[in-house]
Design a binder for these strands. Sequence first.
DNA 1: TAGTGGTCTAGACCACACT
DNA 2: GTGTGGTCTAGACCACTAG
Lengths: 263, 263
Amino acid sequence: MMEEAASRRIANMRVAASAERAPLSLHQRILADIEARILSGEWPPGYRVPFEHELTAQYGCSRMTVSKVLTQLAKAGLVARRRKAGTFVTRPHSQAALLEIHDIKAEAAALGGPYRFEIAGRRKCKITRADRERLEVPASTSALELTCRHFAGAQPFCLEERLINLTAVPEAENEPFSELSPGAWLVQRVPWTAAEHKIRATGADQRTAAALAIVEGSPCLVIERRTWRAIEPVTFVKLTYPAAAHELVARFAPSQMQEARRG
Amino acid sequence: MMEEAASRRIANMRVAASAERAPLSLHQRILADIEARILSGEWPPGYRVPFEHELTAQYGCSRMTVSKVLTQLAKAGLVARRRKAGTFVTRPHSQAALLEIHDIKAEAAALGGPYRFEIAGRRKCKITRADRERLEVPASTSALELTCRHFAGAQPFCLEERLINLTAVPEAENEPFSELSPGAWLVQRVPWTAAEHKIRATGADQRTAAALAIVEGSPCLVIERRTWRAIEPVTFVKLTYPAAAHELVARFAPSQMQEARRG
DNA sequence: TAGTGGTCTAGACCACACT
DNA sequence: GTGTGGTCTAGACCACTAG
């Protein structure tokens, strides 16, 4: 029957590299397949995903099954669905996170001053042993090390120290970061699939105090973020804010009750 | 037909108080109904939710529809499903959050000392105008104001200042908080459905420095959390940690890709 | 107007876990 | 064994909207 054809077809698909032994259900395999196409860039932002009836034919399954998959992808923010028009791969999203990736420019506006940033340091380097706890890549991988100061008016309000994995984002090497700050540039270019934040308070050390024009030892909020695309590390960034300059807000339900309510 | 009976039945259900005009779909109305039963305590933790075929009969709909609802509730963590046994309301969960509600006791263990806490202040009060930005309830609502210090060994590592809405949690008034700290007691007792965190760095003021046995002005991490059950505010808490004592970690995908992958 | 996604049905088969 | 949830099918009707 059709199911056998579908089984063979999907068995041949490049499914997630994770060598799990758990047999995935049909919609999980289809989900993994479409997700891989999107994350790999084979279906870039704006690409029109095949219609439900086309996927039904391609995977040899019923419409309910592909509908379930596309609905989940839409909830996850990877695609947007519009009646009569179709389903489209979305642009990389910074807004979908519960603890959002912050828009530093908007923050500066909130602080009152006109925003600007400056690249204070830049060098290409090989990942050393010490770096590896920040960016989990093999030693001697090429990386770009950036230091950037963000200003609201004349006052620096954020010090950004960043490491970009040049294996994952080779085009960063020749990017001048003149128009967009490194964070904004990456967000527009690289779809990330996982992030880890560490947040703590600290007293400014001498170098940080100098960069932020504050007194040494004064309280700062430090956000360290590691970002992955699929299983590949993309970037590590340490953002240091003087205590007065920044506040994080996160609002959420215990799990996905909001999203469940939408669906 | 059956659909008409179902429509009438569900139209008469106490659906969420939100007077939205958007017509909810069938599974959304059923979801809201079951969620309300759980959150109200009508179906307490451990309660066995009716089997799918029973809900099918009660709501006059197909099994696919109730299955979708129960699957969503399971993803949200409100129920757990076991083959052959049935579907059961879960205990209030602290672990499901992406930015989890912290287990202060476990933190103390990590810092090396034996954990203890002490209630340093307690009074029943009426909500004043100033309180209302912390706990969004009508003025003159009764609340319990608690101050609590958490110790790792001899060293205080967290100052907790809390306001509990006694309308939402009347049994808090006579709770001595001798065994469980206020946070642990609330987590075990009250299923929360939404929380808002504000996180910032600050210098310790005189009172805080005294309570934490640190130098005035030294950096601290401050977490303010407001918690709701459905639309009712439950508690406000301000947690102040000396910079060295605490670090927040949050790891997540841009939206619900992990959960989508599970489903 | 025509075609898309959104929803729902009434079946079915299966794996699993409780008895 | 037996009944539960987990999954899938092959239809159907509807609302919305792009062309």
